[in-house]
Design a binder for these strands. Sequence first.
DNA 1: ATTTCTGCAAATAATTTGCAACATC
DNA 2: GATGTTGCAAATTATTTGCAGAAAT
Lengths: 154, 154
Amino acid sequence: MPSPDRDARDATHRFIEFLKQKRLKQTQQRMDVLRKLLSLQTHVNAEELFHALRKENPSIGYSTVYRTLKLLTECGIAKENQFGDRITRYESSFNRKHHDHIVCVECNEIYEFENEQIETLQREVAKNLGFQMLDHKLEIYGICKLCLRSKESL
Amino acid sequence: MPSPDRDARDATHRFIEFLKQKRLKQTQQRMDVLRKLLSLQTHVNAEELFHALRKENPSIGYSTVYRTLKLLTECGIAKENQFGDRITRYESSFNRKHHDHIVCVECNEIYEFENEQIETLQREVAKNLGFQMLDHKLEIYGICKLCLRSKESL
DNA sequence: ATTTCTGCAAATAATTTGCAACATC
DNA sequence: GATGTTGCAAATTATTTGCAGAAAT
């Protein structure tokens, strides 16, 4: 059975292999960014990651964070997401199934969901239009349960 | 029956009413931006619009284009879209049904499609999660028919 | 005459890049 | 010791804003 710890070790292992294969170096900073991304477990942007890392290592640079996120994305450990605003958010995608996002426009919380029927219909749409589908993304925007509740009680 | 010309006239009319109601002024530039957006009929970014407008009126400014696009979005004539890159693209949304996009990653062409079943499933997902759904967007990324064909013939 | 607009140039925000000092292989 | 990496500062990209002169009400 998969466990968060197990996944973290496996992801780390994959990253190290990836670096080796590309003749890139295994540095402290690169491992730090990976560890932090895995531990935060959410949709973080570069800024949030940078500040979290600064707390532990005040000398880490913004560019290192960006550069490492590129590498992690390249080797499939991280996934980039753009939600409405112009900010790129990253989530760890290692050992994770495809999922879509539903975003609360009030509290900005991002939830995930899966729906196999929607996936199937998307594949059909692409096929009917003669496309070879590579990727797809679906975002639903709305007001979440909690925000609706706190509005009612006014 | 709706015709492109008819839609253009109606959209213009709505924009003029919108400006009046907000006590904003009906200027040459604002009408130019509207006309150009309607005539281009595609998913244009501010830069493309700006250059198209410059050809006819070399003195128009970038900020006017951006500011007018904001107004057109506000009154429902334009709709903003963000596809993967960090660029905002605009399409005219006057008298247009909701639709989703399928983007070719080779030639960057953007096609549109509608699928009522997917829409229904999305509403169900939102409902099940306790969300009040406000908006949603779906993008499929892949390689289009034409690009696939030209790859085969190599 | 008043109010709003425009175009420019400068500001902003997120991200990228050049480079000299530094760490890893 | 050779090569790749880091952190910084400066560049870049898309967009926004302040402002003085110009246009619409």
